[in-house]
C-alpha cells in the first residue's frame, strides 16, 4: 500500500465500482426490459425502447390481468406438487445423510457415491422409462376411490419423481453439515445409551434447522422451475403446471410481448420472492450442490 498514492488508489476504486455497476446493468437488463414491457400497451412496446419506462399514454395493467388468468390454474398446480416434493426430498435427504454420516459401518461411501452420482444424471436418459413407469403405475385408477388425488394423477407422479431426483442433492447438503458437527457430543450421547433414532431426534434434528432452510429453498426453486418432467408426465391439461402454462401462453400470444413478460414475472414471482428473502440460503445451496 505504501507505494500507491491516494489518488491512484481512488481512481482504482472508481474503476472497480464502475465495472461492478456495469455488470449490475448487464445482469438486470433482461429483467428491466421485461418489467417495463409488461406495463406497456401494444403500441407502447412496439414504438418505444424496451428499457424506457411507459408514459401515461402507454401505461397499462391489462397484460398482468390477462396473463394471470392464463396462469392461475398452473400456479395452483405447481404449488400442489412442488410443496410436498420439496418437503419430502429435504426430509428424506436429512435422514439419509444422517444414516450415512453419523453412524459407523462399512460401505457408506459406496452408497453415497451412488446417490451423489444421481445429481448429475441428464434427465433425458430416464425420460422414456419414466413415462412408461407412470403409465403402468396408473395413479388415476389406483386412487379411483379418492377423486382429489385421482384427478391430479400427473401432479402425484411429478411430486414422487421430483422427490426421488431431489434426494441426492439434499443428502449432499445435509451431509456437509453433519460432518461439521462436533463428534464428541454424539459420542457422549451414545455412551449414555441413546439409540440412533433418539440421537437424530434430540441432537441432529434441532441442529439441522439452518440446513433445512437451505435445502427447502434450493429444492423449491429447482422443482418449481422445471419444465421437462412436467412435459412428459402431465397428460391431462387440467394438471398443467405453471412452466407449461407459460410455455403455451408464449406459443399462443406471438408478438404480444407485454403479456409474455407479465406471464414470465408471474411465473417467476414465487422463486424471486424466495430468492430476495433467502438469497444467502440459496447461495449456500448452490455452492453445496456443486462441491
Amino acid at each position: 500500500m505504501a507505494d500507491t498514492t491516494d489518488s491512484r488508489l481512488g481512481l482504482n476504486r472508481i474503476g472497480l465500482y464502475a465495472a461492478l455497476a456495469l455488470l449490475v446493468a448487464f445482469y438486470l437488463s433482461p429483467l428491466e426490459s421485461a418489467i417495463m414491457t409488461a406495463f406497456k400497451t401494444q403500441t407502447g412496446f412496439f414504438e418505444t425502447s424496451p428499457f424506457v419506462p411507459p408514459t401515461p399514454s402507454t401505461f397499462t395493467f391489462d397484460a398482468w390481468g390477462q396473463a394471470f388468468d392464463r396462469l392461475e390454474q398452473g400456479l395452483v398446480n405447481s404449488l400442489l406438487f412442488t410443496i410436498p416434493a420439496t418437503v419430502l426430498s429435504a426430509t428424506l435427504g436429512s435422514l439419509v445423510a444422517y444414516g450415512l454420516t453419523n453412524t459407523k459401518w462399512r460401505g457408506q461411501a459406496f452408497v453415497l457415491v451412488l446417490l451423489v452420482a444421481g445429481i448429475f444424471i441428464p434427465y433425458q436418459s430416464v425420460l422414456v422409462p419414466l413415462s412408461r413407469f407412470w403409465s403402468i403405475v396408473d395413479v388415476a385408477s389406483l386412487f379411483a376411490w379418492f377423486e382429489p388425488v385421482a384427478d391430479r394423477s400427473g401432479l402425484v407422479a411429478l411430486a414422487v419423481t421430483h422427490t426421488a431426483y431431489g434426494i441426492p442433492i439434499t443428502t449432499l447438503l445435509f451431509r456437509a453439515h453433519y460432518q461439521s458437527l462436533d463428534d464428541s457430543m454424539l459420542e457422549a450421547a451414545r455412551l449414555d445409551g441413546a439409540s440412533i433414532a433418539k440421537i437424530y431426534a434430540r441432537i441432529i434434528l434441532p441442529l439441522s434447522i439452518p440446513m433445512f432452510a437451505v435445502a427447502l429453498i434450493y429444492q423449491f426453486t429447482n422443482i418449481w422451475n422445471d419444465l421437462l418432467f412436467a412435459l412428459v408426465l402431465v397428460q391431462n391439461p387440467a394438471n398443467d403446471v405453471v412452466t407449461m402454462s407459460l410455455t403455451s401462453l408464449q406459443g399462443s400470444m406471438v408478438g404480444q410481448y407485454n403479456l409474455q413478460m407479465a406471464g414470465a414475472f408471474i411465473t417467476a414471482l414465487p422463486t424471486l420472492l424466495v430468492y430476495i428473502f433467502f438469497g444467502e440460503q440459496f447461495a449456500e445451496g448452490v455452492a453445496g450442490g456443486g462441491a
Binding site: A34, P50, W224, L227, L272
Partner: peptide
Amino acid sequence: SLSFVVTAIFWAWM
C-alpha cells in the same frame, strides 16, 4: 433462481 422458461422468454424479447 429463475426458470429456463422465464429466462428464455426474457431473452427472446432481448
